[in-house]
Design a protein around this nucleic acid. Sequence first.
DNA 1: TTATTAGGACTGTCCAGTCAGTACTAAACA
DNA 2: TGTTTAGTACTGACTGGACAGTCCTAATAA
Lengths: 193, 193
Amino acid sequence: MNKSKERILASAKELFHEYGFQQTSVDEILKKSGVTKSNFYYHFKSKEELGLIILQRFITIYESDVLIKTLGNKSLSPSGRLVEFYNSVKTFHINLENPRGCPFGNMAIEMSGSNENFREKLSAFFNSWEKIIEECINEGMNSGDFRGDLPPGVVAQLILSHLEGAIMMVKTHRSLEPLSSGSETIMRLLKAA
Amino acid sequence: MNKSKERILASAKELFHEYGFQQTSVDEILKKSGVTKSNFYYHFKSKEELGLIILQRFITIYESDVLIKTLGNKSLSPSGRLVEFYNSVKTFHINLENPRGCPFGNMAIEMSGSNENFREKLSAFFNSWEKIIEECINEGMNSGDFRGDLPPGVVAQLILSHLEGAIMMVKTHRSLEPLSSGSETIMRLLKAA
DNA sequence: TTATTAGGACTGTCCAGTCAGTACTAAACA
DNA sequence: TGTTTAGTACTGACTGGACAGTCCTAATAA
């Protein structure tokens, strides 16, 4: 059931990632999904509500499909997990014909200044993402995978900031190089002496 | 004279940084600058043209007021220059009541997917910015300020990516902490053994 | 004279959102 | 059994405002 609603969600997810939330009009979502405007407003009370639902979907899928499968994969060593995480991010961006950037980073820059609902949700997600990285780093420091002379929280924050900036560069330069080279350098800098 | 033109440029620069290019309307620029619409289109042939001129202004000012004065300050040691650069970036973002993000990073994310003129200009500027960092890193590696076991170009790329990501976090979390803590960590990781 | 500023009305398009009403289904009732 | 009721899904036509940009006229300054 609810075929229209699902089609709206699927189309909006694509369009928001490719063009951004503000640069995607409701009419474009309608056109892509083949749904009428009145039907749209039957399912969603506003474009903002749809945007927040899509953001939540991005978060949920990212947590289960990327974070848990890589950084949370206890069958790998901590440094192996981090490598897998980077691989998975690279694969995600390779598979798009044009780099679209990070769905979260894009939305953070686009919306943080103008909409507190988006900003708070994104801020909370970045925090939880950071915590997941931190746990991996912490374990790797204890196991000797990583150098232990830095607080793991600070390292995790650095990794996430760098990742977001690198994806921004991938989008701007239309090349994966900043991400692949940057992630390798991060791995080298974290290696135990 | 060209007082109106200068007023338009000054207002647009503020508004583009605070709200982004797309989210700023010509009418808002007119209102803020107190200039009439016909006068606006006497000086600029389109909003896009104005946007590209503003971007060029940001670049020129940033190069002369930040990059040359910090990373290009030969009276300081390479690591002293990098510290000064970070201080200057932090000061810039502290002085805004609400974090607005990096003018270049914001525009890169907002425009790279939809306008090649902006994307190419930003890509070229990021490259030149990276080169300036690279020269500082290279010199610091030769002088023994920085560890020398990594290619300076790769380190420069990492520093710039991290900086952009950290400023994104500052904007999203409404806190300077990701930038100040991140820059300190970068300095520690680069210290010679 | 020529560059600049001002006024204001206007165009056509796009925008998010509204509205009254229809089609279908399924349970509740008589 | 047939009839009512109610909820869900959906539709097409519409509104009012915002948008970038145009046009034309007239005043003012170098």
